[in-house]
Amino acid sequence: MEEKILDILEEICGDEVVKEDRDINLLDEDLMDSLDYTELLIAIEDNFDVVIAPSEVTREEMDTPNKIINVVKSRM
């Protein structure tokens, strides 16, 4: 499951660094804008059946690959 999320992130962010550094800050490094974020939410819903509303968690709670993995895990 972690691998799957990392694959999704790599595709959305267009950079494999998200796999190498799981604590990289996606917002600070300009790897994820609001458009990418919506894509991420859809991919999470399609792949894991986990629905996260756009206003549900703050961007700061979802700004690194590790945090995203944890949020998805906590809801599965």
Binding site: S34, T38, L41, P54, S55
Partner: peptide
């Protein structure tokens, strides 16, 4: 962003 843009994009 949260209530219009994101939802429209989705």
């Amino acid at each position: 962003r949260d209530f219009i843009f994101s939802r429209l994009m989705m």
